[in-house]
Structures are given as structure tokens and as C-alpha cells.
Design a protein around this nucleic acid. Structure first.
Length: 906
RNA sequence: GGGGGUUUGGCGGAAUUGGUAGACGCAUUGGACUUAAAAUCCAAAGGCCGUACGGCCGUGCGGGUUCGAGUCCCGCAGCCCCUACCA
């Protein structure tokens, strides 16, 4: 027979059509007895798929096909995270309607994904921009509204005055809007929020039970949730109209800068967020609540500081032009001064604070830019000696610093200098001094003691707070899901009646204007109040797109259900998602929002699940080499560079010398992107899939190399040709009859041992996501089989290779398999099991060591006793020579199948 | 500043979880086939010394535990990622 070419493009498109035609991957969930849900994070339809997608979906496809072979009813769907800003940008730049742009991208990317031969049930495809998708999340939002989980409140946000829109923190670059370049302002605006903080405690604790999540992701979530134990303290404050009274201990400074001449006419109001009853109402004292984790350092307090947007600071500013100016100055630059530390600045207010245990001690109250409004109560008490930030501020403002914790081994009475701090705060363990009833206690003992005293005197409470706050879901954007609310002059914010959902986006919009196109639409927002019928206005905010991605995995269960978002019974069967695969960049936002969302859905009675993802796998990035022109510093396409043996790396056309840079994540700007379409056209999907799963462990970065892809393709050609030839022979002549010679029988058991060992290790490796190792084991088997003369066991070996390789190179294996069994798809064939007996070898080898140093390997019969094994080892010439005449210091250490170690005198 | 990860040949990586370090590949070199090249096949290959048999060294660095350490413990360094005035 003539050798057939490995015609991958014909093979691949033929099998893709056949799988499609026979609905090979469609799954009827209601009939599923053995449910298993494999999901990769769904893509944003940006235009074309990239290698990161290929890696993500290839890994998921391997798992899905493997689980199907293991007998599961595998749900493996695909959809589109279709709302978002890039669609509006494209509309502005190219005059395309966001919907048109999005749907065209989806069509392109769907075709690209199909060319990869993924085992996806495309009948379940969804796009989040479809009204039949977002109508359900509008319903969920109304539920959250009813449950008090969704609220509209004043929030400090980044406001771009040119765009006339709120910006996300990451859209503020060095204090300026990322697109307009305008100075971003910090403004208060009514925004819709979901009360994620309501579940902060549970979201934190439940991480402990997510045993199949990467520790790194759980750690990131814990840090983000930011559980912090301490206490709140209500400081009594009064006006410092009279001259500063230095307290007896000289702690409260008059050392502050000159007071503002413009005293506030009235003291700030008590913080309305105070715990009820914590202030002594009878005496009508004003208090400011602070949160602290270090109440033990109260006796080292030297000042109180408020965030610039603290209600008390605002009230004071109304009476104090200097303070108002200071606050206005600080507000420039938006809410997110990321990156380098800002310069600490403060303004001394007209208030003074009283020490909870020594009411006659008073301290200045500052308004300071380094105090965060969003953390704790937006106010803090400062013990500068034991907090670096407070110390920095104190040194700058010339405030007193009073240490109260002596490091272990330091006696502050004997050596007063030793406990002093210079410009470095002491934050470690130690013993309290100069602290009244806390003296002599360790930091760990003093914290509860201080809290107890504060609680006794009703000035504070032990408390656990969280960094996690509400999730701001309002966006002043067109291309998102409309918030289903109507604002009525008389009735306030009223939810849109459920029978009027979905609130659809208008299609006739003018995207060219600044701000939110929905605001500028001539008619869309005008409607009637559902409750009183008077003219009213629709909410024009749309949801953050993380809203859509918080529940899409449930929608796949019931993608065409018009009555509900998903079916609770199916959810009970298929959720949580068994295997969820995606990039680590979603470690916090998407995954945390989804975990919140399902708790909220459960509270609203939609399902009984808390955690949406059982096992999470985070894949590494796809990297590629970069090439630069050192003269111009411009990035060069690697395909435009060639290596000249004499002159090194040169540009192919201009011949200027080039320099090879690091291998970094593929990006258009660095010109190191490899287009999946090109790879599929040149080598086929199977080559791309095998290359991307070989070598690199899935959780690490993968380096794409042209040579590697080429080598993989050569291997597949050889594999195809060889197995094809084996099948030719088997079909034409039949397999050679087994010979009964001892050598032939030994060859048979050796082959079977190899085959079954491979089945076992490959199965275990896939279960543990060690795909690169699984492939190495399969290649080991094929290397072995390539050189064996054809026999029944060798033939069986090749059939096993087809089955084991099918989830990785599905088209090639299916094509070859169809030659033997045209009536059965490999895709539906069961995974092979291994025969434990076939794994057993009559002989095993042991490593021989002398005093822990390797000497040699010795083989022996497994049936031998320990004594007999030692006998065999000791009579091996090389060993006998090494131990001859030397005295044993102890009995040899024998670990069968591993090692024997002789401990001899030198 | 805080947290996490990582460090093994020229390169990607493997090592039965404390028992032959370098599986499986990439790149390389030699050979076969060919008029020649490509393709294909076979072989070599951690470093140093040696013609070979072999010997010594070797898993970022320094200690420790152990019969035995890439693996466990302590300390240090480099690189990567996340986060950041979180009181």
C-alpha cells in the first residue's frame, strides 16, 4: 500500500462536521445520571481568539473528553461575556453599533473555536448581551432589592468631567482619565451597590472548605476580604477654643503647627455611623468612633486623625475655610492614587479628643490625607511610636511620640532610651509600660485587657471588621444591562414590575456624545411610575459586566428557559461546577463576585448552593520571544527576523541588527503574537493542541516556539503514518500468529506491562492535571511501540495509544480508529482500565549504596526473601569487591525495590 | 511595606513524595540513506579529567536532621506575580 499523507485539514474538518452532525457532545441534563460540569471561563468577544484562549479551551476540552470517556454525563458549554466598554470604543472609532460589532466578533470567534475541535455542546451557547439573558439578571436584581442586598447610596467615585462619567479605579492613570486625560475629580454620587460585605464573614470562612482551589487564589481572596480583629472606640471630642491644655503627662502636644485662626463655629456632629448607645447620650457629648487593632497602645496616643471625607471633617470644613481649602486640594487626583506613596499632609482642626481612661488628657484632631474613608470608620487614633504611618505623620508635623511597648529584653525603666523610637516605629511583640493598668502585660495580653476596660466603661466594643465593602455595580455606560428601576418624583426609586422585564437597551442611540448615551436618548428614559402612574424617569445606569459573569455558568443549565434564569433542580445536580479553568487574573473579582452572587441567589430562594466552583484551576500565560531594533527601540515581529550565521540576528528586509528580548506574554504592542488561525492552517488543530499541552505544566507560563510546534507536527505525521501502516497490515494480512517461544512470551508480557503501566500513569496524571507528564508517558509508549515488530500485543498497544491520545489529539485518533471500527466513535468509547497483574514484573532492580554513595544497580527475582536479596547483592562482583575486607558498622538498610545501603567502616 | 510563588543541563521540564537526579521533549552534534539537499531513520550528549574501564563534582547560597536530602528544618540571596498609607 502506498503511504498516505497526514492530511490534517481534511481530517479535522471532516470530524468536526461529523461530531456536529451526530450531536456528539449534546447532553440531555434531565437524563443525566452521572453529572459532571467542565467549564472554562467564557471569553470576551474582542474580535479574534488568541493563544491564551487556545490554551484555556484545550485544557478544558482534554478534561471534558476524558471525563466523558470515564462514563460521566459531561456538560461542557460555551458562551460570550458580551457586554463591555470596548464595544462602545469601537463604535466611537469606527461608527459601528456596539451590538453589530459584538455579534460579528462572536461569529468570527465561534468559527475559530470550532476549528479547534472542542467537545462543546454548542446548542447551549449564550451571549450576555441578549435580552433573554439579561432579563433574568434584572429579575435577580429586583430580588436583591427586596432583600435589602441592593441599595442606592452616595459613594465617592472617580468622575471624569470631560467624559461626564464615573471611571473605575483602573481607568484612572496618574490622576487623569485614561481616555480624556482630564483631571479626575473625587465626587459623591448616588450609585447602585450590592451588599457584598453582608457575606464578608462567610465568604472568608468558606474559603477553608474550598480544598480544590489553589492556595494562592484563596490567599488573595482572604487578603481582599481583609478580616481584621480589634475594637471600636468612641472618643469624646470637644472644641479646643481655649488655649491648648497640655496634659499632666505632657503627651498631648501643643507641638502642632499654629492653629487655624478661623475656629469652627460649632463642633462637628457625632459620627452617624456610631454604634447606637455607645456614646453617653445623657451628657450630650460628641464622639468620634475609630477602629483599631492596637487598643493596647492607647496610653501612647498623641493625636486623632480623620479622613478628608469624614462627615465630621466635612462639617468642620463648613466653618473653616482653611480646612475646606485643604480638603479640596486633597481631593484632586481621584480616589485611587495607586503606586507610589503619597506625601502625608494634615490639617489641625479646632477639635480636641479626650483620652478614654484619662478624660483630662486632650489631643489634637487632624484631618489627614492618609486616612482612608472606606476602611473602618474613616478615623483613627494614632500611637505614633508603634505605627509607621502615624510616626511619619507625627515627625512631619512635629508631634509628640510616646512609646509604650518595650521590645522583649528591654527594660524601659532602667534604660529609657532603649524603648524610644527614631524614625522607625516598633510594631513587634513586647511588654507594655507607661500604660497604667496595662503595665507589665505583653501586647497579646494587653489587647483583650484594654478592650475589656473599654467595654466596661461603655467607650468601645471588641469588633471584627472587613476591608471588603459593597460592590459598586452602577456604570454610566450604554453597552450593559439596564438597571431595572424607575425614578418617580413621589415614590422614589421603584423596581420595574417583573412582567415588564426585560428592560431592553434602545437600539437607536447616538454613541458619539460624551457621557452615557442612555441619558441623551430622546425618549427612552421617559416612562410612567409603576406605582403611581405619574411621569417618571428610567434609571440610566447599567450594570458592571461582572454582574453577567456572576451567574452565566448556571444559565448554561437552562439556556433557553424563558421563565427563569436556571432550573434549581438541574443546579442541584450540576452545580457547583466540577472543573473551572481560567486565568489567575480573575482570582479576586469574578470569583469573589460569583461566590457572593450565589449566596444572594440562595437567600432569594433560587437555589440551594453557596459555592459555585468546586475545583478551580488557574492556567499560566502563553509567552513568546520578543525582538527589538536596538537603534529605534521598536518591537519587531519575530517572523521578520532571521539569524545570519555571521552577523547574528538581522532584519530580513532591512538587514539592520536586532536584539532578542525576553519571552513575555503575547501582546499586540510587543508584536510577539502568534495567531491561532495561522497555526491551524499550517499544522492543524491537533498539532496546536498537543504542543500547548506538552512540556509546560498547565499552571505555569508556556513558551510558544516555532521549532517546538514544528517538531510536534513531525511527530504527529510519523505517528499517523506508522499507525496507518499497522492498520493496513492488520486489515490486509491479519496479525502475525503468536509464537510459543519463551522469548516471544516474554516480549508479550513486557509489552503488556508497558501498555498497562502507561494506562495507569496517564490516568493518574490527567486526574492531577499533570498533562505534560501524561503526554510524556504516552510518548514513551509510542517510542517503545515504534521499534517493536508487529504482534497482537503491539497492535493492542497502538489501539491503547489511540484511546489515551484521543482527548489531546481527537481528530487524528478518531480518523485512525474509524478505519478499524467505523461504527463506533472514539469520543464515546470508554477509557481503558489497567490490569494490576499486568503491571507486575518478575524481576525488580535495586540501587546499591556504600555509606550513602551510589555504587550500582542489581536485579533480583521478586519472590526472594530479604536475606536472599542481600545474598544476591553481596555476591554481585562489583559489590563484593567494594565490601570485601571492610567492617560493617551496622546492618545494611534494605528497602525492597528501592535501595540497599551498606554502612561500612572507612 | 505586606502576602504568595519560584530557583534542577544550552532551553522547557521530570523525579514513584526521603531512595538511580536529568524521564519526555526542544535546540545541538555525529552517522545512515541520497549525485546533492530536504524529508526520514539510527546514535551521542550535566560538568571536569581520561583513549576506554572509570574517577571526581553537581538540583540558587550557607548550615542542620538522616544510613541516605532536589525533596524535610533553620538562615540568606535572586527572579516573578499579587496587593498596598487597611489603622
Amino acid at each position: 500500500m502506498t503511504e498516505k499523507r497526514y492530511d490534517f485539514s481534511t481530517i479535522e474538518s471532516a470530524w468536526q462536521h461529523r461530531w456536529d452532525g451526530m450531536r456528539a457532545f449534546a447532553v440531555d441534563l434531565s437524563q443525566a445520571t452521572n453529572p459532571y460540569y467542565v467549564l472554562e471561563m467564557f471569553p470576551y468577544p474582542s474580535g479574534r481568539i488568541h493563544m491564551g484562549h487556545v490554551r484555556n479551551y484545550t485544557m478544558g476540552d482534554l478534561v471534558a473528553r476524558y471525563k466523558k470517556a470515564r462514563g460521566y454525563d459531561v456538560l461542557h458549554p460555551m458562551g460570550w461575556d458580551a457586554f463591555g466598554l470596548p464595544a462602545e470604543n469601537a463604535a466611537r472609532e469606527r461608527g459601528l453599533h456596539p451590538a453589530k460589532w459584538t455579534w460579528e466578533n462572536i461569529a468570527t470567534m465561534r468559527a475559530q473555536l470550532k476549528a479547534l475541535g472542542l467537545s462543546i455542546d454548542w446548542e447551549r451557547e449564550i451571549a450576555t448581551c441578549h435580552p433573554e439573558y439579561y432579563r433574568h439578571e434584572q429579575g435577580y436584581f429586583l430580588d436583591f432589592l427586596d432583600a435589602g442586598l441592593a441599595v442606592r447610596k452616595d459613594m465617592w467615585v472617580n468622575w471624569d468631567p470631560v467624559e461626564q462619567s464615573v471611571l473605575a479605579n483602573e481607568q484612572v492613570i496618574e490622576g487623569k482619565g485614561w481616555r480624556s486625560g482630564a483631571d479626575v475629580e473625587r465626587v459623591k454620587r448616588k450609585q447602585w451597590c450590592l451588599d457584598t460585605a453582608h457575606y464578608a464573614d462567610e465568604l472568608d470562612r468558606a474559603l477553608d472548605d474550598l480544598s480544590a482551589w489553589p492556595e494562592a487564589v484563596k490567599t488573595m481572596q482572604r487578603n481582599w476580604i481583609g478580616r481584621s480583629q480589634g475594637c471600636s472606640i468612641d472618643f469624646v471630642v470637644s472644641r479646643a477654643d481655649s488655649a491648648d491644655k497640655a496634659d499632666s503627662a505632657g503627651k498631648a502636644g501643643s507641638a502642632g503647627k499654629a492653629d487655624s485662626t478661623d475656629k469652627a463655629g460649632s463642633a462637628g456632629k457625632a459620627d452617624s455611623t456610631d454604634k447606637a448607645g455607645s456614646a453617653d447620650d445623657a451628657t450630650k457629648q460628641e464622639t468620634i468612633s475609630v477602629f483599631t487593632t492596637r487598643p493596647d497602645t492607647l496610653f501612647g496616643m498623641t493625636f486623632l486623625a480623620l479622613a478628608i471625607d469624614h462627615p465630621v471633617a466635612e462639617a468642620l470644613a463648613a466653618q473653616d475655610a482653611g480646612l475646606a481649602a485643604f480638603i479640596a486640594e486633597c481631593r484632586k487626583g481621584g480616589t485611587a492614587p495607586r503606586g507610589e506613596e503619597i506625601e502625608k499632609r494634615g490639617y489641625r482642626s479646632s477639635l480636641q479628643a479626650h483620652h478614654p481612661f484619662r478624660p483630662d488628657w486632650t489631643f489634637p484632631v487632624y484631618v489627614a490625607n492618609y486616612v482612608l474613608l472606606e476602611y473602618g470608620t474613616g478615623a483613627l487614633f494614632a500611637c505614633a511610636a508603634h505605627d509607621q504611618r502615624d510616626l511619619d505623620f507625627a515627625r512631619q508635623e512635629g508631634l509628640t511620640v510616646v512609646p509604650v511597648v518595650a521590645p522583649t529584653g528591654v527594660d524601659p525603666l532602667a534604660d529609657p532610651d532603649a524603648a524610644q523610637v527614631d524614625n522607625e516605629a516598633y510594631t513587634g511583640q513586647g511588654t507594655l509600660f507607661g500604660s497604667d493598668f496595662l503595665d507589665g502585660l505583653t501586647v497579646q495580653e494587653a489587647i483583650p485587657a484594654a478592650i475589656a476596660r473599654l467595654e466596661e466603661t461603655k467607650q468601645g466594643t471588641g469588633e471584627t471588621i472587613y476591608r471588603l465593602r459593597e460592590w459598586l455595580v452602577s456604570r454610566q455606560r450604554y453597552w450593559g444591562c439596564p438597571v431595572p428601576v424607575i425614578h418617580c418624583h413621589d415614590c422614589g426609586a421603584v423596581g420595574v414590575p417583573r412582567d415588564q422585564l426585560p428592560v431592553r437597551l434602545p437600539e437607536d442611540i447616538d454613541i458619539g456624545t460624551h457621557g452615557n448615551p442612555l441619558d441623551h436618548h430622546p425618549t427612552w428614559r421617559h416612562t410612567a411610575c409603576p406605582s403611581c402612574g405619574k411621569p417618571a424617569l428610567r434609571e440610566t445606569d447599567t450594570f458592571d459586566t461582572f454582574f453577567e459573569s456572576s451567574w452565566y455558568f448556571a444559565r448554561f443549565l437552562s439556556p433557553r428557559d424563558t421563565t427563569q434564569g436556571f432550573d434549581a433542580k438541574l443546579a442541584a445536580q450540576f452545580l457547583p461546577v466540577d472543573d473551572y479553568i481560567g486565568g489567575i487574573e480573575h482570582a479576586i473579582l469574578h470569583l469573589l463576585y460569583s461566590r457572593f452572587f450565589f449566596r444572594a441567589l440562595k437567600q432569594a430562594g433560587h437555589c440551594a448552593i453557596d459555592e459555585p466552583f468546586k475545583r478551580l484551576f488557574t492556567q499560566g500565560m502563553v509567552c513568546h520571544k520578543t525582538i527589538k531594533d536596538p537603534a529605534t527601540n521598536a518591537w519587531i515581529f519575530p517572523t521578520d527576523a532571521e539569524r545570519d550565521p555571521e552577523n547574528g540576528l538581522r532584519h530580513r528586509d532591512t538587514h539592520v541588527p536586532l536584539a532578542e528580548g525576553a519571552s513575555v506574554k503575547m501582546s499586540k504592542s510587543k508584536r510577539n503574537v502568534v495567531d491561532p488561525d495561522d497555526i491551524i492552517a499550517t499544522y492543524g488543530a491537533d498539532t496546536a493542541r498537543l504542543f500547548i499541552l506538552s512540556d509546560s505544566p498547565p499552571n505555569r507560563d508556556l513558551e510558544w516556539t516555532a521549532a517546538g510546534a514544528d517538531a510536534i507536527h513531525r511527530y504527529l505525521k510519523r505517528l499517523y503514518r506508522h499507525i496507518d501502516g499497522v492498520i493496513d497490515t492488520a486489515l490486509a494480512d491479519g496479525l502475525p500468529p503468536a509464537t510459543k517461544t519463551p522469548e516471544a512470551e516474554e516480549a508479550t508480557t513486557a509489552t503488556m506491562r508497558m501498555v498497562h503501566t502507561t494506562i495507569k500513569t496517564v490516568t493518574e496524571d490527567i486526574d492531577r492535571y499533570h498533562f505534560n507528564r501524561a503526554i510524556a508517558r504516552i510518548r514513551e509508549l509510542t517510542n517503545y511501540l515504534f521499534v517493536q515488530p508487529l504482534s497482537a500485543p503491539v497492535y493492542e498497544g497502538w489501539m491503547t495509544v489511540l484511546r489515551l491520545f484521543n482527548p489531546i489529539v481527537p481528530h487524528l485518533t478518531e480518523e485512525l480508529h474509524a478505519r478499524i471500527q467505523p461504527d463506533q466513535l472514539l469520543v464515546s468509547a470508554p477509557w481503558p482500565s489497567w490490569d494490576a497483574e499486568a503491571l507486575v514484573s518478575p524481576q525488580e532492580e535495586i540501587s546499591v549504596q556504600i555509606n550513602g554513595k551510589m555504587l550500582c544497580r542489581v536485579a533480583y527475582d521478586v519472590a526472594l526473601t530479604d536475606e536472599a536479596v542481600l545474598e544476591v547483592v553481596c555476591t554481585t562482583p562489583k559489590v563484593a569487591q567494594a565490601i570485601e575486607g571492610r567492617q560493617a558498622r551496622r546492618a545494611p538498610i534494605l528497602v525492597r525495590g528501592r535501595i540497599v545501603n551498606f554502612i561500612l567502616a572507612p
